[in-house]
Design a protein around this nucleic acid. Structure first.
Lengths: 151, 151
DNA sequence: GTTAACGTTTACGTAAACGTCAATGTGGGT
DNA sequence: ACCCACATTGACGTTTACGTAAACGTTAAC
C-alpha cells in the first residue's frame, strides 16, 4: 500500500460545512458555490488541475474534486499562478514509495514553506502600514472634530 | 498646509539600507537593484504609478521614487494588480483637506485592511497544511530509516 | 573613430486566465 | 410539440503585464 499524504482533505475544506463525502456535484453547482463560471472550471480541467468523472460527456464532481477546487481557488487568492498550483497539487499525487522521493517531497515542501513565510512578512508589513494610516487618520479626525465641531 | 499621510516613506523602505535621501537613481540602477527590467519601470510610469523627474528625456529617480517602486513590487508579490496598486497609491495623494475626505480614506483603508486580513488567514491555513506535510514526511522517513536502514 | 554602455520612443508580440459566442445535445415541465 | 435549463466542444476575443525589436541620440573608453 502506497504511503499517502493529502494536503487537500476534508479537514482542510475551504467552504466549511461538513458535507456528505458521497455527494456528487454538477459543474453549475460548484460554479455557484465558489462564485466562478463553469468555463473556469473546465479551463482548470484543460490545464490538468482537476479530473472529474464523466457520465457520457457530462462531468461529475466528487466531494474530493470540490475540496480540490476550493484549494485551487485559495491558491489563486494567494497569488499563485495555475502552473504553480498544479505543481503543488502534483507534489502529492506522485508515488511516494521510495525514500529518495520522500526526501524530495520534504525539500520542495520546505522551499514552499519558506516562500509562504516571505509572503507573510510582506503581508504583515503591508497590514502594519495601513493600520498606521488608520490610526493617523483617526487622530486627525479627532483633532478636526475638536477644532471645528463637525465637517 | 495640507495634511499628509505617507504609507510609502523611508521608514517603510523595502530594501533595507538607510540611503541618502538626496541621491538620485538612473533607471538601470533601479532595475538592477530590484531585479526587474527598465522596460518594466517605464511601463509603470505609463500606467501612472511613478512620475520621475526628467533631465531632457532622461528619467531621474529620487529616493522617494525608489521607495515607491519597492512598495509597488511588494504589492505585486502580494498578488495585487497594477490597477489595485495604483488605486492604493492614489489614495494617499488625494487632497486631504476635508473631513469627509478623511472619512472616505478611513473607510477605504479599513476595507483594504480587512482584505489583507482575509489573505492572511488564507496564507496561515496554507502554511499550516504544508507544515503538517513536513511533519508527516519526517515521521515516515524516520520509520523507514528505522526499518530499512537507509534508502 | 568605433565599440560599448547607457538612455529614449514607437510599436508589435506574447503568455496567462479566462470571457464570449456558436453550434449542438439532453432531460423535464406544460 | 415546444420551451427552458442545463450540459458539451470548439474557436476566437480580451485584459494584464510586460518582452522584444527597431531606430535613434549621448557619453566614456580604447
Amino acid at each position: 500500500m502506497t504511503f499517502r499524504i493529502m494536503p487537500v482533505t476534508a479537514s482542510s475544506a475551504v467552504s466549511s460545512e461538513p458535507r456528505d463525502p458521497l455527494r456528487i456535484y454538477s459543474i453549475a453547482e460548484l460554479a455557484r458555490e465558489f462564485a466562478i463560471t463553469a468555463r473556469t472550471i473546465r479551463f482548470y480541467e484543460d490545464e490538468g488541475l482537476i479530473k472529474p468523472r464523466r457520465q457520457g460527456l457530462t462531468r461529475l464532481y466528487s466531494a474530493g474534486d470540490r475540496t480540490r477546487l476550493g484549494w485551487i481557488l485559495r491558491g489563486k487568492r494567494l497569488g499563485f499562478s495555475l502552473a504553480e498550483i498544479k505543481e503543488l497539487l502534483d507534489l502529492y499525487q506522485v508515488d511516494r514509495t521510495g525514500v529518495s522521493q520522500l526526501r524530495e517531497l520534504q525539500r520542495r515542501s520546505r522551499m514552499h514553506i519558506e516562500d509562504l513565510q516571505r509572503r507573510r512578512s510582506d503581508l504583515d508589513a503591508h497590514i502594519k502600514e495601513f493600520e498606521d494610516v488608520e490610526i493617523q487618520v483617526a487622530a486627525e479626525l479627532k483633532k478636526r472634530g475638536a477644532e471645528t465641531g463637525n465637517d
